[in-house]
C-alpha cells in the first residue's frame, strides 16, 4: 500500500511571502506523527495543506497515492478553537449529525451512529446539550466525535488540547490514543507542547521558520500502550524531551 500521506517538494508562497519551502515527507499508514516548531513557523499551514484547505504553489501533497486538490471526507480536521468549530445552535447530537449528513448517512441510520460516536468520546449522557453548556474538554471531545463520524483514514489535529488545562489535556491524550488505536487512522498532530509530542507520537517532526522547513525527524521508540506516569519516567522519554528542547532552543535563537 502507498503511504497515506506523502508530500513531495511542497512549497507555499502567499502574497510574496515564502511560508513553506521544500517539504518532503512520507507518513506511514496508521502512524502517529507530531509536528513541533516555534510559533509562526508554518505548522498550521502545513496541516492545512494536507487537509486540502490550502493548495501548494510548488510540489504536491498526496493522500493514498492521489493528489490532494480539495478537502476530502476521509480526512478529518480537529481545530484548536473548538468553540468556533462547533455549531452553537445544534446540540451535541446535532453537531455529530452534521458530519453524518455530509457523508450521506440516511436519516434513519443516524441516531444509532450518533449514540455510538458520542459514547466513544464519553459524551453519551450529554447528547442534548448545546456546546455553550459544555466545558472546553467536552467541546473538544465533541469535535473529535464529529471527525470520527467521517470514518477518516487520516486525522489532522491542530493543537487540539492547547487551550485545555493540564489534567483535561492528559485525559484527552489517552482517549485520542485509544480512539486512533481502535480506528487505525493515520494521525498528523500539531502541538507546541514538546512532552505531548513525545508522549503521543511515533515520529516527531521539527520545523524551522522563515521559511518553514523540516529540520528534524525524530523516531520515538517508546513502548505502547503509553502511560501518563510510567512512560514519562522512562529514560528514553527524558532523552527525547531533552533532544526536542535543545532543538527548540536553537530554532528560536
Amino acid at each position: 500500500m502507498t503511504a497515506p500521506i506523502a508530500l513531495r517538494n511542497v512549497g507555499l508562497t502567499l502574497g510574496g511571502k515564502r511560508i513553506l519551502d521544500g517539504i518532503d515527507l512520507e507518513i506511514a499508514r496508521g502512524s502517529f506523527t507530531c509536528v513541533v516548531g516555534p510559533s509562526g513557523c508554518g505548522k498550521t499551514t502545513l496541516l492545512r495543506l494536507v487537509a486540502g484547505l490550502v493548495l501548494p504553489t510548488e510540489g504536491e501533497v498526496q493522500i493514498g497515492g492521489t493528489r490532494v486538490v480539495a478537502p476530502r471526507r476521509d480526512v478529518a480536521v480537529v481545530f484548536q478553537d473548538y468553540g468556533r468549530a462547533l455549531l452553537p445552535w445544534r446540540t451535541a447530537a446535532g453537531n455529530v449529525s452534521l458530519a453524518l449528513e455530509a457523508m450521506g448517512v440516511a436519516p434513519r441510520a443516524r441516531p444509532a451512529r450518533i449514540r455510538d460516536l458520542l459514547g466513544r468520546v464519553g459524551l453519551a449522557e450529554h447528547a442534548d446539550k448545546f456546546p455553550a453548556q459544555m466545558s472546553g474538554g467536552m467541546q473538544q471531545r465533541l469535535q473529535i466525535a464529529r471527525c470520527l463520524a467521517q470514518q477518516p483514514e487520516v486525522l489532522l489535529m491542530d493543537e487540539p488540547f492547547g487551550a485545555l488545562d493540564a489534567m483535561t489535556r492528559q485525559g484527552l491524550q489517552d482517549e485520542v490514543l485509544a480512539l486512533v488505536g481502535d480506528s487505525g487512522a493515520t494521525v498528523f498532530f500539531v502541538t507546541h507542547d514538546l512532552e505531548e509530542a513525545a508522549y503521543l507520537g511515533d515520529v516527531v517532526i521539527g520545523l524551522l521558520p522563515h521559511p518553514g522547513r523540516i529540520a528534524r525527524q525524530v523516531a520515538v521508540k517508546l513502548p505502547r500502550p503509553r502511560d501518563q506516569l510510567a512512560t514519562r519516567e522512562l529514560p528514553e522519554f527524558l532523552r527525547l524531551r531533552r533532544e526536542l528542547f535543545d532543538f527548540m532552543r536553537t530554532a528560536e535563537a
Partner: peptide, 12 residues
Amino acid sequence: EPRLIEVARALR
C-alpha cells in the same frame, strides 16, 4: 465564523 466555513469545506 470563518472556522465554520472551513468545517463546511472540510466536510465538503
